[in-house]
Computed example of a mutant assay.
Amino acid sequence: MPDLAETPPDHRPAIVICAWDADETGWDPVEDLSGLPWSPAGARTVAVPGGEPDALAGTLAAHLADQRCRALLLVGRTRRSTAFRLQIRAENRSLDGVRRLTSVGPAVARATAPAADIVRALNEAGLPVETSSEAEDDAGSYLLYRVLSGLPEGLDTPAVGLLRAPENQPDAEVQRAVKAAAEAMARHLSPLPRSRAS
């Protein structure tokens, strides 16, 4: 007899959300006592906690290798702006910024997330936002490059983006911005084929 309490499979595509700094408190995916993470319409979120950048890059790559995972939003802070910043490219640099990360990788990797839609969503939420092609010398830029340069080429490329909150932005505003960005990304995700979802 089948177990009726068994959870049915979730056929929504996944968006991984990762605040790369382990001390970052701005993004908490669980917003109530249910213990269930927040998810935008049409997608489900997978929260990946921050940590050591090399190990974290491997964890994020493993999530994106699962074809049920269709997007990644990296979340962090910036000291360079009083507005939210959507970083749209990352440079081939080592974590310390001294040398190239890899001699065979491209000099620049461009984010694949729908930047215009994310900017529009944050503006509609009343949050100031700007796009930037300028990488910052931190784990966020390093992770963005590592993830993007490791993606296989093809039509089914996942949406990958990096959203930075101003350094002193309250956690509640960071939550609003992350949700707005994830909702914009989710609108571009098609449902999983049944063969992939099972």
Rank of each mutant, 00 (worst) to 15 (best):
V98T: 15
H63Y: 13
T112D: 09
E130G: 13
A83R: 10
E91G: 01
A111P: 10
T59K: 14
P49G: 04
R77T: 06
W38E: 07
L72Y: 03
D10C: 11
W20L: 00
G105S: 15
R12S: 02
L33G: 05
L86W: 05
S34L: 09
E91C: 01
C69R: 07
T45L: 07
G126W: 08
E91K: 02
V46E: 15
A109K: 08
A47C: 08
D28N: 11
R85C: 04
E52R: 12
Q87A: 06
A71E: 01
A121H: 04
D96H: 02
F84Y: 03
Q67M: 11
D66L: 11
G140R: 05
R44K: 14
P53Y: 08
N92I: 04
V147L: 05
C18P: 04
T45A: 08
P29G: 15
A125C: 09
R80T: 10
L64W: 06
L73S: 03
C18W: 00
A111Q: 12
D137P: 09
L33D: 11
L122N: 02
D66K: 13
R68P: 00
V104E: 13
S141N: 05
R68T: 02
R44W: 11
L143S: 03
G126A: 14
A135R: 05
D10M: 12
A19E: 04
Y142K: 02
L74D: 01
I118V: 15
T102Q: 13
L36G: 01
P114V: 11
S81H: 09
W27C: 02
G76R: 01
L60K: 07
Q67K: 14
D28G: 00
D96Q: 00
G50M: 08
P106C: 04
A121Y: 00
V129S: 01
R85F: 00
A61I: 02
R85N: 01
H11D: 14
S81E: 10
L72I: 10
Q67N: 06
R93S: 01
G76C: 06
N92D: 10
A22D: 08
A65C: 08
